[in-house]
């Protein structure tokens, strides 16, 4: 659905985005992460046909972003950083206007508009001027606009920014429900928990270049190393006498826990459990320790910064 090859954008002498390779298939959600000014919005704008790539190419829903920009824009729903609402209109008028732009017939416009307003909890204020809405309501309406024509490609720049936790949750659920076999979604966000929750694939952009890309698990393995496991004991236990395979890297050893890393958990964990059973150790739990995207991101950024210096 979204393919790019060596995509780059130069402003004067500065490459804002360089050598971006993306391949987002239908049914997948890609999260673009990065600092402010990393090139996320520039990438989204190129994918919308708003910015002309300085080099490389991009195809969205089968259309070239330069040669078929109008078709590209018909195929995408874009949520921009600024909500972009006309404050003198009502929500009903606003959605109807965008429905007309995407050439939906009157019945479908009404149906979609009613559904979206209801879903986002805006039905009661649908006939009020948008200027009276709160920030969160505006963001919800902007998202409703993005969805009015049920586009096969969604490009969402900070979809939950300025929203209260409840609304943000609602929007996240909506985005998750939008995942379908016929739709590709790209989300730019600073909210790492959101990305972790929604994305099938994550790309970390730094100074215009994708420094890391892959599934969350792959990124965790790549950045933080192999998976980590932890054994907790219900009573103090001396693990020193335990026979530990060489392939296991011990990270922490106390009388209450044993934390280790292994590249072959199936084999090593089974071996460890049998050893602990033999020793009659008071095992409480053995579980994979959770590693967050935040850890991945921060470590990746530290490494990239070190490389750049």
């Amino acid at each position: 659905m979204i393919q790019t090859e060596n995509l780059g954008k130069k402003f004067n002498d500065f490459w804002a985005v360089d050598n971006i390779q993306l391949d987002v298939k239908a049914g997948k959600i890609l999260a673009l992460l990065g600092q402010n000014g990393a090139g996320k919005t520039t990438t989204i704008r190129m994918l919308t046909g708003l910015l002309r790539p300085s080099r490389g190419w991009a195809r969205v829903n089968g259309h070239d972003v330069v040669k078929e920009a109008s078709q590209v824009r018909s195929s995408v729903g874009v949520l921009t950083e600024q909500h972009g609402l006309y404050l003198r209109m009502t929500a009903v008028e606003y959605l109807d206007f965008f429905g007309k732009i995407y050439r939906l017939d009157a019945d479908l416009r009404k149906k979609r508009s009613d559904y979206l307003l209801e879903y986002f909890g805006l039905a009661e204020v649908a006939k009020e001027r948008i200027g009276k809405y709160s920030k969160g309501m505006k963001q919800k309406l902007a998202l409703a606009r993005t969805l009015i024509h049920e586009p096969p490609v969604l490009l969402l720049d900070e979809p939950t920014s300025a929203m209260d936790p409840e609304s943000a949750r609602l929007v996240r659920d909506e985005i998750a429900s939008l995942r379908s076999s016929k739709r590709a979604i790209v989300i730019c966000t600073h909210n790492l928990a959101e990305a972790e929750m929604l994305a099938d694939e994550i790309a970390i952009i730094y100074r215009g270049k994708i420094r890391l890309k892959g599934t969350l698990d792959a990124l965790k393995d790549k950045v933080l190393g192999s998976a980590e496991y932890e054994v907790c004991f219900s009573a103090p236990y001396n693990v020193s006498k335990l026979k530990i395979p060489a392939s296991m890297e011990i990270l922490e050893k106390t009388t209450s826990t044993l934390r280790f890393r292994t590249e072959n958990p199936a084999k090593d964990n089974a071996f460890l459990l049998s050893e602990l059973s033999k020793e009659d150790a008071p095992i409480l739990t053995l579980e994979k320790t959770s590693r967050t995207l935040e850890e991945v991101y921060l470590k990746a950024m530290t490494e990239v910064n070190r490389e750049m210096q």
Binding site: T48, L50, S70, Q71, R73, S74, V76, V78, T80, E81, Q82, H83, G84, L85, F98, I101, Y102, A142, R145
Partner: peptide, 8 residues
């Protein structure tokens, strides 16, 4: 941006 992002 919302306007320019339409198929106009």
């Amino acid at each position: 941006e919302a306007l320019l992002g339409t198929p106009f």
